[in-house]
Amino acid sequence: MVAISVPARPLHPLHAILLAFPLPLFLGALLSDIAYAQSFEVQWSNFAAWLNAGGLLFGGFAALWALIDLFRAGPARRRHAGLYFVALAAMWVLGLIDAFVHGKDAYAIMPEALYLSAAVAVLALVASWLGYSGIRPGAVA
C-alpha cells in the first residue's frame, strides 16, 4: 500500500443535515431511559420511545444516502465510506430493536432499553464522527 494524498471530501449539505439529527435524538433517548430508571415515571419511557423514533427516521435517510455514496466512492474513499455505512446501519438496526423494546409495557423495558439506548448512542457518535471527518491528506488508499 502506498500513502497518497486524498483531499478531504465534505458531506453534501443535505446529507450533513440528516446526519446532524440521530446523535442528539438517540442521546436524548438514552438520557430519558436513565431518568426513567431513576424515577420510574412512565412519561420518561414515552419520551425515549419518541426520541428513538425520530433518530430512526433521520438515521434511516442518512444511511440510505451513505449507501448511495458507498457505491459512488472511488477506490481511495471506499474503505472509509464502507465503515461509515456499517456504523450507520448498525446504529439503525440496534435502534429498531430498541424501538421494539420500548413498545413493551413501561415496567418491562428495563434494563434492556437502557443498554440498547447506550449502544445506539455510542454508534450514533461513531457514525457522526466518521461522517463528518472525511478522508484527510496522507490517507492510505
Rank of each mutant, 00 (worst) to 15 (best):
R9G: 06
Q38A: 15
L18I: 00
F47Q: 14
F100G: 12
V2L: 10
F100W: 09
A108Q: 15
G28R: 06
A127V: 10
F47K: 09
M91D: 04
L83D: 09
S128I: 00
F71K: 06
M91W: 03
V122L: 15
A127G: 07
A87S: 06
G95T: 01
R79D: 12
D33M: 12
A87Y: 01
L67F: 14
G131L: 06
W92A: 08
L125G: 11
P7N: 12
A29H: 01
F21D: 09
V86H: 08
A139P: 04
A108W: 12
I4R: 14
L51K: 02
M110L: 15
L83N: 08
A89R: 14
A49E: 15
V42P: 10
R79I: 12
G134S: 07
A87G: 03
W44I: 05
S39I: 05
L83T: 02
L51G: 02
A87P: 04
L114T: 09
V101G: 01
P10G: 11
V6I: 12
P24N: 09
P10E: 12
V86D: 08
G55W: 00
L57V: 05
A35C: 11
A127C: 12
S39A: 14
V93M: 13
D69A: 12
Y115N: 10
P7W: 07
Y84Q: 11
A118E: 06
V140S: 14
G134Q: 06
Q43F: 10
Y107R: 13
G131A: 11
P13C: 06
V140D: 15
A63P: 00
